[in-house]
């Protein structure tokens, strides 16, 4: 009896082997995305068209940048809720610099680069503030970033009122708009920006000392400190990177809408965190990869796109999206449980 059981476990059947391979593969979310794509294809045949594929790619890009930044923070067992307010604040600050309607650098050759630098500086400044509060003041990241989110969401609206009579800042230069909207041979310009950010982030996490320190801080902060890792500076760096990534996302979103708006990105926080976590990055730190985040973002954007094309009511969209994400989370939980067993 015992011998049979051992023999059974040593040589699992074909389908079980395939299931185990799928379940434990780091490409699981990619497989789920493919499965979802095939499942919705009968209901939305246009999903397979080149136009929708291009839409999916361009919808993924800004969300992916901000999610990559969030990955860094989650790896050190933190969370950055302020990314949406960074997107909004950077959007209106950048627009106020370059708008043709009385911008600080209106009609100047420096308008676009000046605005982009200002936007990244906003991201870095808020990220640095978050890092300082978490690192120096020992405040929980949840509370720090929640309050910065609230403050800068309000500040963005307040800032806008000084620059326009309406609720958004328009008339942005063509050179900026083309970054968010333009494409060359169907390949969006934004792809090059996001690819550069993604590759740099991957190299930092996988190939640099900072990357190893980030994982060490996320796994066991005390052990990392004992091992000589400058924990405070590493955590601050994670928030700084998250802020910068949110600012880059803001550049892409603002260019795409041709408008600096103080409510930009206000409703995407759950998509950002959801995409990173669905990808496989742990909320408890120490585990995460840029590639996983790419898969998580792809999965969420696929769901969103299919539901948009189905034209379902708002309530159905929320319910279906919730169910699909829950299913992905359940599969992840099952995977973790089996991983612990084997």
């Amino acid at each position: 009896m015992i011998a049979t059981s051992i023999a059974g476990e040593a040589r699992p059947s074909g389908p079980r082997r395939l299931l185990r391979h799928l379940l434990f593969s780091e490409y699981l979310v990619l497989y789920l995305s493919l499965a979802y794509f095939l499942a919705v294809l009968p209901f939305v045949p246009q999903m397979a068209s080149a136009e929708v594929m291009r839409n999916i790619l361009s919808d993924m890009l800004p969300l992916l940048v901000v999610a990559i930044g969030q990955t860094f923070v989650l790896i050190v067992a933190g969370i950055d809720l302020s990314v949406t307010s960074i997107i909004a604040m950077a959007s209106v600050v950048g627009a106020s610099v370059m708008t043709g309607d009385g911008g600080y650098l209106a009609d100047s050759a420096l308008a676009v680069p000046g605005a982009m630098i200002a936007m990244v500086l906003v991201g870095l400044a808020i990220g640095a503030f978050n890092g300082f509060c978490v690192n120096r003041l020992g405040m929980p990241p949840f509370i720090v970033t929640l309050t910065t989110m609230m403050f800068f969401s309000g500040a963005a609206i307040w800032f806008t009122t000084f620059h326009t009579e309406t609720s958004s800042i328009a008339n942005l230069p063509h050179g900026f708009v083309v970054l968010g909207q333009g494409n060359l041979g169907g390949v969006p310009h934004a792809l090059w920006v996001v690819a550069a950010v993604g590759i740099a982030a991957h190299l930092v996490l996988a190939r640099s000392v900072l990357g190893r320190r980030l994982y060490a801080c996320g796994q066991n902060r005390r052990a990392a400190a004992v091992s000589g890792v400058p924990v405070g500076r590493v955590i601050a760096a994670a928030f700084l990177i998250s802020g910068a990534c949110a600012a880059v996302a803001s550049i892409l979103y603002t260019g795409r809408l041709q408008t600096g708006t103080p409510i930009l990105g206000q409703t995407i926080l759950l998509d950002i965190i959801g995409a990173v976590v669905i990808g496989g990055t742990s909320l408890f730190g120490g585990k995460g990869k840029v590639l996983w985040t790419v898969f998580g973002v792809l999965f969420l954007v696929l769901i969103d796109t299919s539901l948009k094309m189905l034209g379902l009511s708002l309530f159905s969209v929320f319910a279906i999206k919730g169910c699909v994400i829950l299913l992905a989370a359940v599969i992840d939980a099952v995977r973790t449980r089996y991983a612990a067993r084997f």
């Binding site: 939305v44 246009q46 839409n55 809408l257 408008t259 708006t261 990105g265 409703t267 969103d304 948009k308």
Partner: peptide, 29 residues
């Protein structure tokens, strides 16, 4: 969400709808 609405418009165009009636959040975006 201005960005989401922009994505919705593109999705509907990809779906080859014959017309769009829209209530936008922001008159510029």
């Amino acid at each position: 969400d201005d960005n989401r609405q922009f994505e919705q418009v593109r999705a509907m165009l990809a779906r080859k709808v014959d017309g769009i009636i829209i209530v936008q959040t922001d008159s510029n975006a």
